[in-house]
Amino acid sequence: MRLAEGIVIDKDKTFGTLKFSALRREVRVNNEDGTVSDEIKERTYDLKSRGQGQMIQVSIPAAIPLKEYDYNAEVELFNPVANTVATATFRGADVDWYLKAEDIVLKKKQSIISHSQNQPSQMKEK
């Protein structure tokens, strides 16, 4: 089975609350001769996932500016996709999962608006 577009994820059910931790690594483009260039291909970030109960790594394209959010800032993923890489071994294959997203953004806090009546009750004395 081949999933050309990866596995689309229900963010809330899969990850729960996500909190920013740090930049893990930058993946660079290789030159034609196999040496590493200065061009960044993608960045991988560590995020704490309440739904997974552990740290997860998510890669986003280098075209997206570097994320330097506060530690433990609540974030969300834009269009996350899971995929796999298989490596042939003597006994079959080892499979590694990886996560990619189009972006990691700060989660917008929902503001609670209270509608209190600012009309004082008027009592007339007789």
Results as ranks from 00 to 15, higher is better:
Arg2Lys: 12
Arg2His: 06
Arg2Val: 13
Leu3Lys: 06
Leu3Glu: 09
Ala4Pro: 01
Gly6Asp: 09
Ile7Met: 08
Ile7Trp: 09
Val8Tyr: 03
Val8Arg: 02
Ile9Leu: 15
Asp10Gln: 11
Asp12His: 11
Thr14Glu: 15
Phe15Pro: 02
Phe15Ser: 03
Gly16Phe: 04
Leu18Arg: 07
Lys19Ser: 12
Lys19Val: 04
Phe20Gln: 01
Phe20Ser: 01
Phe20Thr: 05
Leu23Pro: 09
Arg24Leu: 11
Glu26Met: 12
Glu26Gln: 14
Val27Glu: 15
Val29Ser: 04
Val29Ala: 03
Asn30Val: 01
Glu32Ala: 12
Glu32Gln: 13
Glu32Leu: 10
Gly34Phe: 01
Gly34Cys: 04
Thr35Gly: 04
Val36Arg: 10
Ser37Thr: 11
Ser37Pro: 01
Ser37Tyr: 08
Glu39Ile: 13
Glu42Cys: 08
Glu42Ser: 14
Glu42Phe: 08
Arg43Leu: 05
Tyr45Gly: 00
Tyr45Cys: 02
Asp46Gly: 07
Leu47Arg: 06
Leu47Cys: 06
Leu47Ile: 01
Arg50Leu: 10
Gly51Val: 07
Gly51Arg: 07
Gln52Gly: 06
Gln52Lys: 14
Gly53Thr: 01
Gln54Glu: 14
Ile56His: 01
Gln57Val: 02
Ser59Arg: 04
Ile60Leu: 04
Pro61His: 01
Ala62Arg: 05
Ala63Thr: 13
Glu68Asn: 15
Glu68Ser: 13
Glu68Trp: 02
Tyr69Trp: 10
Asp70Met: 09
Tyr71Lys: 10
Tyr71Ser: 08
Asn72Leu: 11
Asn72Ser: 09
Glu74Phe: 00
Glu74Ala: 02
Glu76Cys: 00
Leu77Trp: 06
Asn79Ala: 11
Asn79Lys: 15
Asn79Glu: 14
Val81Arg: 14
Ala82Phe: 09
Ala82Glu: 10
Ala82Tyr: 05
Asn83His: 11
Val85Pro: 07
Ala86Phe: 06
Ala88Asn: 08
Thr89His: 08
Phe90Met: 07
Ala93Ile: 05
Asp94Met: 10
Asp94Gln: 15
Asp94Pro: 07
Asp96Ser: 14
Tyr98Leu: 05
Leu99Arg: 00
Leu99Asn: 00
Lys100Ala: 05
Lys100Val: 13
Lys100Arg: 13
Ala101Asn: 05
Ala101His: 06
Ala101Glu: 03
Glu102Pro: 02
Glu102Val: 06
Asp103Asn: 15
Ile104Pro: 04
Leu106Asp: 00
Leu106Ile: 10
Lys108His: 10
Gln110Ala: 12
Gln110Lys: 14
Gln110Tyr: 05
Ser111Thr: 14
Ile112Cys: 06
Ile112Gly: 02
Ser114Asp: 12
His115Met: 06
His115Lys: 13
Gln117Pro: 01
Asn118Trp: 03
Asn118Phe: 11
Gln119Tyr: 10
Pro120Gly: 00
Pro120Ser: 02
Ser121Thr: 11
Ser121Leu: 12
Gln122Ser: 09
Gln122Lys: 14
Gln122Val: 15
Lys124His: 09
Glu125Gln: 11
